[in-house]
Design a protein around this nucleic acid. Structure first.
Length: 123
DNA sequence: CCCGTGACGGGGG
DNA sequence: CCCCCCGCCACGG
């Protein structure tokens, strides 16, 4: 049954699942490492839905077990910093993990990048 | 119902 | 390097 054919559905169906999957992946990001919205979208089978990854994190505002601060854009920029309450909360969280930030960008981004797809390969 | 607006990303000029 | 456009899709006006 297609989503639109279900009259009982008041809101979201696929989303609940997608959101949950995003949170699951984010929880796997190791301490001191980072990844990107696009990498998460890709490993969930929706490489063009990176925006939705951001949307998912948006509605997960501060679940203590979801390290959303480790998710950056493809260039290692802290594009989501404004959603962490204070102006530099996101940066501080990253720095507390030993990561260096310069001009809102993670230094050695490529080196610290953690690819969720790799995690899938290794089990 | 249409439209603008995003924590995005890839491709083309 | 720049900029623009497109695909993506939920949500609010």
């Amino acid at each position: 049954m297609t989503p639109s054919s279900n009259p009982h559905r008041t809101k979201t169906t696929n989303n609940d699942n997608f959101f949950a999957q995003v949170y699951d992946v984010v929880r796997l990001i190791p301490y001191g490492r980072v990844t990107s919205y696009g990498a998460i979208a890709k490993c969930l089978g929706s490489p063009q839905s990176s925006r939705m990854v951001g949307w998912a994190l948006n509605s997960c505002h501060n679940f203590s077990d979801v390290p959303a601060h480790r998710v950056l854009n493809r260039n290692g920029l802290l594009t989501g910093k404004v959603h962490f309450g204070g102006a530099n909360v996101m940066q501080q969280l990253l720095e507390s993990e030993g990561i260096t930030i310069e001009d809102d960008r993670v230094v050695d981004f490529e080196k610290l990048f953690w690819d969720p797809a790799e995690e899938l390969l290794n089990g």
